[in-house]
Amino acid sequence: STNLYSRLSCDPSYKLVQLTPELLEALTSDEPQLQFKCFDEKRSDVVLCSARRTWLLRQKNHSNTVMLMREFLPEDEQTQEDSSLFGIPRPINDLLGYSRTTYEYETRATEGRINLDLVPIYNGEVNFPGESKLKGRTLKDVFDNSPSSETECKVRWYQLGGCVVNGCPCILSPDMLSNALHVTLMSALAESLDFDRLHPCETYEVVQKDVEKGRSPYVLEVVRTVLAKFGTPNDDETWKLNRRQVAQWYGVRALQKFASRHSVPLEEFLIKWKSTFPPFAGFDIDIKMLRGWFCEPTRGTVQYVSKDTLPVDVKDRFKMLFKLQSQWDLEAFAPFIEDLNTKGLKIDTFIMKYARKRRIGKKIVVCSR
Amino acid sequence: PSVAISTSQVRALLLSENRQTNVTTPMGNMMLEIQGDLEIPETSHADDRFSSHEGVDIVKFGLLHVNMETKSATLFIGKKQRLLGSVVKLDTPLGLLKFNHKSGTVEMQDIFSYKVIFKNRPLPIM
């Protein structure tokens, strides 16, 4: 048997964390260590990050006594009388309880987020970054300060239009990104570059041929961001342009330009959208690509819906969307509310909490209750 | 804010495949769970059961007997209570984290794959 002892005042600095198969894999990999990270000390939630993945930490309280004990050698050995052994074998070792816990940490896979506090927007300014508070800090510093794995940071950075200009991490403004994309496509088309194998340096060289002599805002890093945001990496440092993503970008910009203040007939919008591409670019377009960015106030017309105007409160958002359009196809409606589905319900289950569903022929439409 | 978790100790354990097969881990730790509150004095008393270890007051509170063949366990608490329980393999192993507030560091010191758990009402010691 074993003698059990306990400290009279337990050490509160021990905690337990569930080691899922993913965490065990991260522990045994050659990649850098696990880290606890957080946006800020006061309000936000702690995440656990490996090199490639991020998990939200969740505290699971329980009502039992859990004592953590370790083998030790008591300083004053006492012999035990047989009568105090209650009929079980003599103790051969001793354990000392040093901590008690009333909870375990669970982990739930989540998306890493980049901390963009203090990251300036770059719109092609000549003296960038000027007196930016981020001066002197590197991209690695931005990633280190983000509740995210490094791998997710790298992918997400470019998705956001992240760039490093004059040594300063920044986000390209939508205008800057649009212009850079347009110039890059035009130059690549002019030089017949292969859109499936665009190399940043080669692409940068052809862009420089086409811009005016003097200071061009389309530095190598900007071109690199364009390729990374609108492409997928090949094995050999080249990028394959994602045509659908490029078409979508042009489409959203076209909605903002031509269909913001009032609705526009769909056919007219499609023509205008097509006209915004570089000549002979050959990108296919389909209004379904822009779901989540427009509504159809009347049949056959489209109007831009800015994500900035969408209420944060779920009921208010549903109300606003049904005011814009009384009846929606389920697929067109879902992109407008999926960010509110924080519990991860099936999307139509989530929608049905706040709206009504009707079948019209083969289609499912959503309308207000 | 961020803090790296030092994992060299458990990494070596996992890579050596030296896993816990007994109630105590290869590092000598054990997890004891009781469905109830374990009441232990907060201050020392003039009694044999109280002593000290490395300058810290401790008290002997029980006697544990484990049968690894049947995975059954008996825990005697004080002089009056007897609990019957079992050795259970954890569905998900638990990492033991030590937070050092002075240095601001965190270390994963061990991994528990088993615990000894007592869920039944205590019986009197006859």
Partner: peptide
Amino acid sequence: KNFRIWVRYKEGFSDAVRKNVSWHDLWS
């Protein structure tokens, strides 16, 4: 002897409550 070493039994077990963890919680 004015002390007790005792298990106060609880009839049930509950572990349904879960919450996110703040930096302060982590170090508390």
